[in-house]
């Protein structure tokens, strides 16, 4: 039963406070994505867990064992962490098999049975075993790097933006293969990323970082549908945020009276609606009507920016996400309706 427990972790580089008090729990055998914009301190957090850095304040427990606090820090080599850096960083002088077996004891390195298993687990052909890192594609390099990290059965696997150097098609495939491998081995993993799609689609838990602390941690669904504040809401996806007046009946905003969820107290508030909650239809007979300003067509869907033309929200701009095939054209007049509740932020 292994988990990561982090309390009050803080670290400064000189004058610059990078982490200001991070609390995070990672349940055993699950994947947590640490999501945040670049420079938010997420890589620093990972390096602290790995033991490459020591914290100024706070504690890190791995599997119930204290590995770092303000006064002492267990060396990386004794923490049993698997580390997968951004560029894979395979040992250039070793072939794939030797790279994967690197962390194993000498006897097991010789036998080589683990290498075959891990290659298979990561969906790599056994014929790659004798290749050298420079003979592999970027996606293959990353898979080998993950196999290498998994080989010694680490307490936790740390992945630092492992897919960001891959092109988009490869990224999704590699991400899936890696996550499958992590689940199959029952590993606990922390994945650092700035890509919200990656975080939401791959992880069991998403921890959103901002300003040197964890702004919110929860399931992908909680993070997306019930963000704690506007910044979280806007980082994990497009959001329509409108001023509203909350009453027992719901929230009255530019879109009329809508249902609300979240920490609602009567009075003035802001509500958040995801663009896919707005449905577009014919303008005749519609209560809410808007004129289409522009359309960003993505194939599978389209983002439609429109300006409301009816009270109470006349002149307010909102964004709707609709099926790509039925997207209106700029200038069209469309009817607008709201599906599901708004979230008070």
């Amino acid at each position: 039963m292994t988990s990561v427990v982090i309390r009050g972790l803080a670290l400064s580089f000189g004058e610059q406070r990078v982490l200001t008090g991070v609390d995070l729990d990672v349940p055993a055998s699950s994947t947590t994505a640490v999501l945040g914009p670049s420079g938010c301190g997420k890589t620093t957090l990972l390096r602290l867990i790995a033991g490459f850095l020591a914290p100024d304040e706070g504690t890190i427990h791995l599997g119930g064992e204290l590995v770092a606090d303000a006064t002492s820090s267990t060396p990386t080599a004794r923490r049993r962490v698997g580390y997968v850096p951004q560029e894979g960083a395979l040992f250039p002088h070793l072939d794939v098999a030797a790279n994967i077996a690197f962390g194993l004891a000498r006897a097991r390195r010789r036998s080589g049975d683990r290498v075959g298993d891990l290659l298979e687990l990561l969906g790599l052909s056994p014929s790659l075993a004798k290749r050298f890192p420079h003979e592999l594609s970027g996606g293959q390099q990353q898979r080998v790097a993950v196999a290498r990290a998994l080989a010694p059965d680490p307490a936790v696997v740390l992945l630092d933006e492992p897919f960001s150097s891959l092109d988009s098609g490869l990224r999704a495939d590699t991400g899936r293969a890696v996550l499958q491998a992590l689940r199959a081995t029952g590993a606990t993993a922390i994945l650092v990323t700035h890509d919200q799609d990656e975080a939401l689609s791959l992880a069991d838990q998403v921890a959103l970082m901002g300003g040197g602390r964890i702004a919110q941690a929860g399931t992908p669904r909680q993070i997306y549908q019930a963000p704690v504040d506007r910044a979280v809401a806007e980082f994990v996806g497009e959001a329509v945020v409108l001023p509203a007046v909350v009453s027992d009946a719901g929230a009255t905003c530019a879109l009329g009276l809508v249902d609300v969820q979240g920490p609602a107290t009567p009075g003035a508030a802001s509500v958040m609606i995801r663009p896919e909650q707005l449905r577009l239809g014919r303008s005749q007979g519609a209560q809410l009507v808007g004129r289409v300003l522009d359309v960003a067509y993505h194939g599978h869907d389209a983002s439609v920016r429109l300006r409301l033309a009816t009270d109470p929200g006349e002149g307010v701009d909102v964004v709707a996400r609709v099926d790509g095939a039925t997207a209106p054209s700029p200038g069209d007049l469309v009817g607008v309706s709201v599906q599901g509740p708004a979230w008070v932020v």
């Binding site: 990386t76 080599a77 580390y83 850096p85 960083a89 040992f91 070793l94 690197f102 962390g103 680490p154």
Partner: peptide, 24 residues
């Protein structure tokens, strides 16, 4: 970075020098 990776795989710094740095 290769030293970091090696350390994360449970290798002591002396071993890392022998198995990673020296060959390179």
């Amino acid at each position: 970075l290769l030293d970091d990776v090696s350390a994360s795989l449970g290798t002591s710094s002396l071993q890392t020098f022998r198995r990673v740095t020296l060959p390179l």
